[in-house]
Computed example of a mutant assay.
Amino acid sequence: MPAALSPTTPSRRQFLTLLGISAAAVSCGTATGGPGRQVKTLKYQGAVGTVTLPELAADLGHFGDVTLEWVGNTISGPQDIQSAATGQTHFGSAFNGAVIKLASSKAPIKAVISSYGSDQHSFGGYYVLEGSPIRSARDLIGKKVGMNTLGAHYQALLDIYLSRSGLSEAEAGKVEPLVVPPVNIEQSLRQKQIEVGVLTGVLRDKALATGGIRPLFTDVELLGPFSAGTYVMTERFIKQNPDTVRTFVTGVAKAIDWSRTTPREQVIARMAEIVRKRGRNEDTAALQYWHSYGVAEPAGRISDKEFELWLDWLGERGEIKRGQLKAADLYTNEFNGHGKG
C-alpha cells in the first residue's frame, strides 16, 4: 500500500508549536526516584530495526547496575523528549532545535549528551528521482517534501536551505513539508506521491543501492559535520538521581567512542546480535548499511555552538523570544566522566 501522506501542514511560523507543553504537565510525571533512593531502571523508547546509543552502552556493560526498560518505539524526536519531560520515560532524544522549543515552553529539561549528528558517513539527504526537473531550491516551490516529522531537524534544515538559496518567506511557504514514515519515504518518492524525500542512514543507503534517485542537498553539505541532537532528562530527575545520570551519560559516551574506534563490521555484528536478543521481531538486514552515529564531539560532549544556530534560527522566525534562552543554560557536561583524564 502507498504511504499515507499528512493532509495538512502547519504554517512555517506555527509548526514548532507542536512541541508546546506546560510546566504543569511536566510536574505530573511519574518516572522519578523517591527520597533516599535513586532510580536504577530507566524507561525509554527505541526505534525499529536500529540500536540506539543507550542500548549499545547497556549491551557493552557500561551501565553497571543501571538497566533499561523499553516501553515502545518512536519515529519522532519531539514526541520522544515530550515523553521524557512529562515523566512517561526517563530520557529522550531529539533535534536540538526541538529541545530549545520545549525548554522555551518552561519545561525544566536539560540536555546531558549528544545523541546523533551528521558527518561524511552518516547524514540526512533530500533526494529526488533521477529524472526529476528539481535542481535548485527555487524548483521546490509548490512541491511536496516527505520527512519523518514536522517541527524537527529536517524541516529546520529545509528552511535554512530555502533561506540561504534566496527564497522569500512567501516563496518558502509554498514548499509543502509532509509527514511520511521513514520506511515509506523511498516508496512514496518512487510512486511520485512526493517530489522530494528525506532519507537517512540505512534507508538512504538501501535506496541509493537500488538506484534511480539523486541528492538535491544534504545536511552535512549545508552545515558541515555537526552534532544535531541530544539526550535530555528533567532537571528534577537529574537532581534526585545524580549517580544514575552519571552512569548513563558516561556509559553512552563510552559507547560513542567504542563505535568510532571499533571496526565497522564488528559494530554491525554487535548491533545485529542486540536486535536478535531483544526479540521484537525485527529485520537485521538493514544494519549492514550502518556507518556511524554522526556525533561530532569526543565522548558526545555538548558545546554552545550546537544550540546557538538553532537559537538564532528560531528567534528570527518568532518561534522563541530573542535572548529568552542561552545555549549554556540548555545543557550540562557535568555527568560525562569519560575521557576526563
Results as ranks from 00 to 15, higher is better:
Gly77Cys: 11
Val71Ala: 06
Ser76Glu: 08
Phe91Met: 15
Gly72Tyr: 01
Thr86Leu: 04
Gly92Asp: 06
Leu60Asp: 15
Asp65Glu: 12
Phe95Asn: 15
Thr86Ala: 05
Gly87Arg: 01
Ser76Gly: 12
Gly61Arg: 14
Thr67Tyr: 08
Pro78Glu: 02
Phe63His: 06
Ser93Pro: 07
Asp59Val: 14
Asn73Lys: 00
Gln79Asn: 08
Thr89Cys: 13
Gln82Phe: 06
Gly72Cys: 02
Gln88Leu: 12
Leu60Gly: 13
Gly77Thr: 01
Asp59Ser: 15
Ser76Val: 11
Ile75His: 10
Val66Glu: 06
Ser76Met: 09
Gln82Tyr: 03
Val71Gly: 02
Gly87Glu: 02
Pro78Lys: 07
Thr67Glu: 11
His62Trp: 04
His62Thr: 08
Gly87Trp: 01
Ala58Ile: 03
Asp59Pro: 11
Leu68Gln: 06
Ser83Asp: 02
Gln88Trp: 14
Asp59Arg: 14
Thr67Asn: 07
Glu69Gln: 07
Asp65Val: 11
Gly64Leu: 03
Gln79Thr: 11
Gly61Asn: 13
Phe91Leu: 13
Ile81Ala: 09
Thr67Gln: 08
Phe63Thr: 04
Ala58Pro: 02
Ile75Cys: 07
Gln82Asn: 04
Asp80Phe: 03
Trp70Thr: 10
Trp70Tyr: 10
His62Val: 03
Asp65Asn: 09
Gly77Glu: 05
Phe95Cys: 13
Trp70Leu: 13
Val71Glu: 10
Asp80Asn: 11
Glu69Trp: 07
Asp65Cys: 06
Thr74Gly: 04
Gln79Ile: 10
Trp70Asn: 14
Phe91Trp: 04
Gln82Met: 12
Gly72Ala: 00
Phe63Ser: 11
Ala84Tyr: 13
Gln79Leu: 09
Ser83Gly: 08
Phe95Gly: 09
Thr67Trp: 01
Thr89Pro: 12
Glu69Leu: 06
Gly92Asn: 01
Asp65Ile: 10
Asp65His: 08
Ala94Thr: 15
His90Phe: 04
Ile75Ser: 08
Ile75Trp: 12
Gly77Ser: 08
His62Pro: 12
Trp70Cys: 10
Ser76Asp: 09
Ser83Met: 02
His90Tyr: 07
Gly77Met: 10
Gly87Lys: 00
Val66Pro: 00
Gln79Cys: 04
Pro78Gln: 10
Ile81Ser: 10
Thr74Arg: 08
Asp80Trp: 02
Val71Ser: 06
Glu69His: 01
Thr86Asp: 03
Glu69Asn: 02
Phe91Glu: 02
Gln82Val: 02
Gln82Lys: 08
Ile75Ala: 07
Thr74Ser: 07
Trp70Ala: 13
Ser93Thr: 15
Ala94Ile: 15
His90Ser: 05
Ser76Pro: 09
Thr89Val: 15
Ala94Pro: 15
Asn73Ser: 01
Gln88Asp: 14
Thr86Val: 00
Gly77Leu: 06
Phe63Ala: 03
Trp70Lys: 12
Gly92Lys: 01
Val71Met: 03
Gln88Gly: 10
Gly61Ala: 11
Gln82Ser: 03
Gln82Arg: 03
Thr67Lys: 01
Gly61Val: 15
Leu60Ser: 15
Asp65Trp: 11
Ser76Trp: 12
Leu60His: 14
Trp70Asp: 07
Asn73Pro: 02
Leu68His: 07
Asp80Pro: 05
Gly77Trp: 09
Ser93Trp: 06
Thr86Lys: 03
Gly72His: 00
Ala94Gln: 11
Asp59Asn: 13
Ile81Asp: 08
His62Phe: 09
Gly87Gln: 00
Ala94Glu: 14
Thr86Arg: 00
